[in-house]
Design a protein around this nucleic acid. Structure first.
Lengths: 235, 235
DNA sequence: TAGTGGTCTAGACCACTCA
DNA sequence: GAGTGGTCTAGACCACTAT
């Protein structure tokens, strides 16, 4: 124990190990040395090696098993971590002015697929709203949203969605919900094309999202982005 | 110290804290107790609390600063972790039979935007290939790929892309590269529609990906998925 | 059953940054 | 300057599982 590693050692160890993996010092599926051995090699505590290895396992680069040891992942699956910001942030991040407009709002009985998403019964009604989001007063995204009145009844009395969009209001109200998202491509229909001021048949990027908290379903929405929108990240 | 927490304590502490955050015990942007205080409250070592808090900070739920303390993230940004599997796995995961067909292959000088992606000079040539990926013999995705011959020269002599698609071959050859991905929607052109046996103008899901290793650019590709494809994850 | 990773602890020192 | 999180260590015991 000794010498060259003093601070941030587990980061350094992790990067060192990453390089050794990337350089194919250990091949796909191959066993790498045990924690104890690596600790000796790097001259640090086993805990430090453990943290580094766990981080790499989290990234999907290593597979670890008690008694089985640690292996380089035989099927490297790329993990992309993508953050889904609020639309306002997204628009303001590109230096544009954000605004939005509520174009429809009602209490109604949703279709069966929506009822399934929100786990509500046949005949139950829910809150529905359509919002157009603008960047510099040009349509940017179009949102269709259903909100479960059983979990968020107070939305019925919320009249002022001028300052805060429904999404922002929900985030303040039920901040840390979990959810499911899916991305797909969608041909603009008459309705979506009109809302986004684009052509029928345009290829829109569609984000479909359902949100719940403590097992109670809160909201489900479809968000159609204008042509040209890209969702980017690194892997 | 004592009593009820023995195993996996940092997981349990993490989930307990997560619930307290989700239930708004601490509001958005609010300071939560220090590690020392939480350690007292939970009756465990500070290290254990530290691991739990770091994990929540990694998820973007907490923001931590030395001396500043730990706060609930004031702007909850959803973090989706999505894994991008190899096409073969993707197809086989839904119980279909995977196959692929190389429909074009050449060494040529790419367009300027591709040259930029691969950081190669004007006039330099690169390896190009088009592949159609099938699920149960029906077109599933269409791939246009450029490979940098300066970093992966051996691909020029690789003749057999029947068993292994180019993607799989690259993963075996340069397993743990990093990269940039973007997702968007794209109207099918004559070329892409023909490859995917669909209609011109169909809304295709497009994955654009550029990959490098140790600062050397390896490959850039566009992958067009058939209509109906969805990329899903949880947040 | 033995070997590996998973976790906890108590204490220590450091790095940052707020007031 | 003082309070907070970031990290390291050495040792311990436990949980899992390959052999």
């Amino acid at each position: 124990m000794s010498s060259q590693l003093q601070s941030n050692s587990h980061h350094k160890v992790r990067e060192s190990l990453r390089e050794r993996i990337e350089s194919s010092e250990w091949k796909l599926g191959e066993l790498i040395p045990t924690e104890v051995d690596l600790a000796k090699e790097y001259g640090c505590a086993r805990t430090t090696i453990n943290r580094a290895l766990q981080a790499l396992a989290d990234e999907g680069i290593l597979i670890r098993k008690r008694k089985g040891g640690t292996r380089v992942c035989p099927i490297p699956i790329r993990q992309a971590k993508l953050s889904i910001p609020i639309l306002r942030e997204q628009v303001e991040a590109i230096g544009s002015e954000y605004s939005h407009q509520l174009v429809g709002r009602k209490i109604a009985a949703p279709s069966q697929s929506i009822r399934q998403n929100l786990k509500i019964d046949d005949g139950d009604s829910a809150f529905y709203a359509e919002t157009i989001h603008f960047a510099d007063h040009r349509p940017f995204a179009y949102e269709e949203r259903w909100v479960n009145l059983k979990t968020v009844p107070e939305i019925e009395n919320e009249t002022d969605f001028d300052l805060l969009s429904i999404n922002e209001w929900l985030i303040k109200t039920v901040p840390f919900s979990s959810g499911e998202v899916s991305f797909s491509a969608h041909k603009a229909t008459e309705r979506t094309a009109k809302a986004l001021q684009t052509d029928i048949g345009a290829a829109l990027f569609l984000v479909d999202r359902t949100t719940w908290m403590n097992g109670k379903f809160i909201t489900t929405m479809k968000l159609y982005y204008r042509e040209g929108y890209r969702l980017s990240t690194t892997i």
